[in-house]
Amino acid sequence: MSTDIAPAPVPKFDDDEETGRKLAIICSKGNLDMAYPGLVLANAALGEGVEVHLFFTFWGFDMITKKRMGNLKFTVLGNTATHMPQGVGGIPGMTTMATAMMKKQIAGVGVPDVPEFLEQIVASGGHLWACRMSADMMHLEKDDLYDAVEGIINASEFIEKTEGAQLLFI
């Protein structure tokens, strides 16, 4: 023990000041690969004490529709980043195979599937909202949606709820 050693710094967890930081994420895609960026960022922000609102719209509705949320797909078609000949993507069964592979890779890094990820986001205090226009177009009601979705709201209501928030459109 020595007296000339400086006291260790204490990390600033910013508990005392109400930073009021908010993040709004608009999820507009229903592909498996495009579902994850929003979920990962929402989860990360919640872990940093940021208030998070997710708004599911258009194809993003698949992420919260009970019948589809566990069955999102990944396709090689139109995705040059797979570096596979596009013709291969059109072979019957290819999307199923590519989806299975991606799901395995996601699970391999310890990341949950979409329904479980949403459960974790809600448990961390995240808010889920469904888009009114998408619900009307697809003839879906609140009962068709994941239970933790807080409501079906219109775009103006979402803008109101996320006043001052940083916004991500995915």
Partner: peptide, 29 residues
């Protein structure tokens, strides 16, 4: 997860790591 946010409010992962004398988690999820 809910309990962790209750026990270590706002930033559970970092707070737990700090108290446990460990580095901050490096994983994204």
């Amino acid at each position: 997860t809910k309990d962790l946010f209750r026990l270590f409010p706002k930033k559970p992962a970092k707070k737990m790591a700090y108290i446990a004398g460990l580095p901050k988690p490096r994983g994204c999820v």
